[in-house]
């Protein structure tokens, strides 16, 4: 029985690794660290998700995609629950996810400083167009880059451009 339960949860994880993020379809919801846990209950599987941003409009689409994939794979009825705490962090993006983002043309987020990770008081950091942190261009790897827009096509990204190869690129913001 135990091995059967484990295999159903394992099968669910395998399926979830194929569910792509609707707004960044280069990475799976598992690569992004949105799927926190898969729990076996008597009445079906429970998929625990942690949304990336409070107002991320993709959250509902992700719930839908995840449940549809589980049912399509013949793993029975599943339900999704949202877990807010601990808050999602870009540090949860896997190394594989970071590599996929970079290959897709999105500069992956740097790892958080201890202050940011602990959410302790931090000084206001006023910065202009030249990036405070050196963000390497995902195409040519040059660190001569500048920020064009603090907000991008989705809540989780900002827009940059590379001064070396002249290409614009998106940066997954560290939070």
């Amino acid at each position: 029985m135990t091995s059967m339960v484990a295999s159903r949860v394992d099968a669910a994880w395998a399926v979830l690794h194929t569910v792509l993020d609707p707004e960044v379809p280069a990475v799976s919801v598992c690569d992004l660290g949105i799927v926190r846990e898969v729990i076996e209950h008597d009445d079906g599987l429970e998929i625990v998700l942690t949304p990336t941003y409070s107002g991320c409009p993709a959250t509902e689409a992700i719930e839908h995609d995840v449940l549809a994939a589980i049912e399509q794979a013949g793993l029975g009825h599943a339900r999704a629950t949202l877990r807010r705490a601990p808050a999602w962090s870009s540090d949860w993006i896997s190394d594989e996810g970071r590599a996929k983002l970079k290959a897709y043309g999105i500069a992956p987020p740097a790892h958080l400083t201890p202050e940011a990770a602990a959410n302790t008081a931090m000084p206001i950091k006023l910065f202009g167009r030249i990036a405070g942190e050196r963000i390497a261009c995902p195409r040519c790897a040059s660190e001569r880059t500048e920020r064009l827009s603090a907000f991008g096509s989705t809540a989780c990204k900002a827009l940059y451009r590379c001064m070396a190869c002249r290409e614009p690129f998106e940066h997954f913001k560290p939070i």
């Binding site: 941003y53 409070s54 807010r84 705490a85 601990p86 808050a87 959410n119 206001i124 006023l126 603090a150």
Partner: peptide, 17 residues
């Protein structure tokens, strides 16, 4: 506490920008 743990990261970015 859970809502705040998420929102503080967003508010920090809004303030900087």
């Amino acid at each position: 506490a859970a809502i705040a743990g998420k929102a503080v990261k967003e508010a920090r970015y809004h303030q900087q920008h």
